[in-house]
Amino acid sequence: MGWELRAASGKMYFYKATRGADGRVVKVYVGRGDRAHAAAAAAEARRNDREAVRRSIEAEAARTAGADELTARVVAAAALVAAAALLAHGWHRPNYGPWRRKRT
């Protein structure tokens, strides 16, 4: 999607990229008049929106990164020690299901 230079005329034309029913991306000619400028401005606005959302998701992830990292360490250690204690007490966990006491 964007302005493309056509060598034959030496002018810039705007092409819009759309995805067809078969899933393939096709370029659709829009032109170089007012309609093309409006389509280019709309495409730019959509790009900016996507970028803003991406930045806010990154900021959200960064805000909780410290807590997530500490929590993950505690959870990993607790899971390991709990599994070790349960196995030592004769419990098992078949097929990743709930922990069960082994039949004696």
């Binding site: 607790a78 899971a79 709990a82 204690a85 349960l86 419990w91 709930p98 922990w99 006491r101």
Partner: peptide, 9 residues
Amino acid sequence: AALVALRKA
């Protein structure tokens, strides 16, 4: 779930 199993064990 792990806590419940652990308490029982």
